[in-house]
């Protein structure tokens, strides 16, 4: 029984990890190529979820909604890049933090102005509900398996995009030497808009997919944003490989910590105290992990460049 529970929890950890990867890959790309720290990335996650919920409700099709969510987030990303972000590339990180912090406020309250204060309804389509029985009589929700599948597909797609396409070549060039791509005659501002929209679209996809499992509400992007930052810092900022590794690490450590720390403390403490201490420590676990990693590897595990 405890082995099947462990397998199930590992799956949960991987599923959380793949969704974190969707967020973190965009963040890390944007930082790697443009050197921009974007606190408003969680807002695109929220935009994706809201657009998907609204369109799914009016068309009745989750897939159309999902497409609309990705497009809406990418469009919002492109728009924000054109109006605000491109003025920030040459500014210190501090200005970027302030501007994108302001964007969070604008997106959150703007969404509330349009959609109201109540959470929206968004559920997985009926053909994705239910569960499959895994070996060892573990029941696992189909939808979560699909999420893992989507995450894997996106990882492969991103890998191919970056290693095999012209756009990918430019992204790599931008990551290693920002001056060079200008010299190569690449239209940098178009490239930047494109990369930003790509990152926003990925965040929107994550928001839409996860929104069907969670509550679609204002501010839903903030906890994910913080987690995604932990992920890219652990992995090494600018590194897609690092983001993938960091996302899986954070997903698994967080999930297992939440389950097993309270159980662990029960071995030598009264149950009510053990759950309290265990839960408190579990909440801090990934930050402890991050601090330990950075103490030994100040540029993360897979530092791409500085």
């Amino acid at each position: 029984m405890s082995v099947t529970l462990l397998i199930e929890q590992l799956l949960n950890g991987v599923q959380l990890g793949t969704m974190l990867f969707l967020m973190a890959s965009g963040l890390t790309l944007i930082f790697g190529v443009m050197g921009l720290i974007n606190l408003a990335h969680g807002s695109f996650y929220m935009v994706g979820a809201y657009a998907t919920a609204a369109i799914t409700a009016s068309t009745g099709s989750f897939l159309i909604g999902l497409g609309a969510g990705i497009v809406a987030a990418a469009l919002a990303g492109a728009l924000v890049e054109l109006i605000v972000i491109r003025r920030l590339y040459h500014r210190p990180h501090l200005d970027q933090v302030l501007a994108t912090f302001a964007l969070i406020l604008i997106f959150s309250e703007g969404t509330r102005l349009i959609f109201g204060s109540s959470p929206l309804r968004l559920s997985p389509p009926s053909w994705l509900t239910g569960f499959v029985t895994l070996p060892g009589d573990t029941r696992y929700p189909i939808y979560r398996l699909v999420l893992i599948g989507v995450g894997v597909a996106i990882s492969i797609g991103l890998y191919l995009l970056i290693s095999r396409t012209r756009l990918g070549m430019r992204i790599r060039a931008g990551e290693s030497d920002r001056e060079m791509i200008g010299a190569l005659g690449v239209n940098i501002s178009k490239l930047y808009t494109l990369v930003f929209a790509l990152g926003a679209g990925l965040a929107g996809l994550a928001g839409a997919l996860v929104g069907a499992l969670q509550s679609v509400q204002v501010g839903m992007g903030e906890p994910v944003l913080i987690l995604a930052f932990v992920v890219i810092v652990i992995g090494g900022i600018g590194s897609i490989k690092g983001a993938l590794f960091g996302a899986l690490l954070v997903g698994i450590v967080d999930t297992l910590g939440r389950v097993y720390l309270p159980i662990f403390f029960r071995a030598f403490m009264p149950p009510s105290e053990a759950t309290g201490v265990g839960a408190a420590l579990a909440a801090m676990l990934i930050y402890i992990l991050m601090a330990v990693i950075l103490a030994f590897k100040p540029k993360g595990l897979f530092a791409a460049h500085d």
């Binding site: 990180h93 933090v97 801090m284 930050y287 601090a291 100040p298 540029k299």
Partner: peptide, 21 residues
Amino acid sequence: RTTGVYFIMITLAFAQMIYYF
């Protein structure tokens, strides 16, 4: 020991740790 964005993020992480505690 870290610089730049890493410094921003690690100070955030420590504060979050204390917040959750």
